[in-house]
Amino acid sequence: MSTKNVTKKNGIIKIFLDQLPLQLMVIPSVFFFFIFSYVPMAGLINSFLDYSLTDGFFGHSWAGLKYFGELFTDPVFFLSVKNTIGMSLIKFVFTFTAPIIFALILNELPFLRLKKLTQTSSYLPHFLSYVVVATLWIIFLDPNGLINNLLVKTHIIGQSIEFLAEPKWFWWIGMVIDCWQETGWNAIIYLAVIVGISPELYEAATIDGASRVRKIISITLPSILPTVSVLFILNIGNLLGGGPVGSNFNQSFLLGNAFNHSTSYVVQYFIIQAGLNQMRFSFASSASLVLSLVSLIMLFSANKISEKITGKGIF
């Protein structure tokens, strides 16, 4: 028995040495994942400790649930939670459906040149830094900016609106920017699936006298439905980050100001301010931990629900 084990062990070492070049190609990735992903994960334990920079790596005293108590009695945290949920829900509904609708419309377009042009241009905003995007929108949403000019000239509104100074607009602005930035990009996958639908289905429907709208509803939509449900589950995990685009922090950080603070302040920004500005590391980690846990729970429950309904989940 023991000799067998020894030879087996030697076998493993021998195989490993034989594969050494290959192993050396993978092992750096394992090392980097360990340092830059797993160590920070373990670092969330700080939320149960009294962490201070001067104490080094170990030697922080146990704090129990003290910081969670502080967190759940902090009114600013609750404000940020409220904003995160509101903003995320609005964004999710619109940024998730817009690419589907855009793909369906683009697919009906018979002019190929225009289709190509529109598709290429629709990716453009995806490639811009959020700093650029935010600045563009600040300029265009200015009371004297392009959008206000347009709305006033067409008499949709009586006088110009200070969009970024009025709290009630912030969530909607965030949603519009996300749709503008990512609809084209997120439609790629749907367009690819639509291209893969067998043309025979459409031909048969035409012979049966189906109208184009009918074909969209009865052929195109059902064909992309599996993709829609997979993406839906995947995106649920990022709902609190701002849905498919995940822009909650960027927006809060770059477009938030003193005037719209009551609707623009989100949990991600709260965590960064508490941690990096006020140096309350344990407190910020506890908020971070709560956020990741809630997101994970949502991801797995979405998967479970999908298993119940469609018979299969994605993992």
């Binding site: 993978v26 990735s29 394992v30 994942f33 340092i35 830059f36 992903s37 797993y38 160590v39 920070p40 994960m41 373990a42 670092g43 969330l44 700080n46 962490y51 920079l53 790596f57 995990g237 965590i271 960064i272 941690g275 990096l276 590391f281 910020a284 980690s285 971070s288 956020l291 990741s292 994970l296 991801l299």
Partner: peptide
């Protein structure tokens, strides 16, 4: 190796522990 990588897709420590890590190293 694959599972070790897959986990990083779903779990992350977030910004604060990363910041402390970068400070330490």
């Amino acid at each position: 190796y694959i599972v070790f990588g897959l986990v990083t897709l779903y779990f992350s420590g977030g910004i604060i522990p990363s910041y402390l890590l970068y400070t330490n190293i």
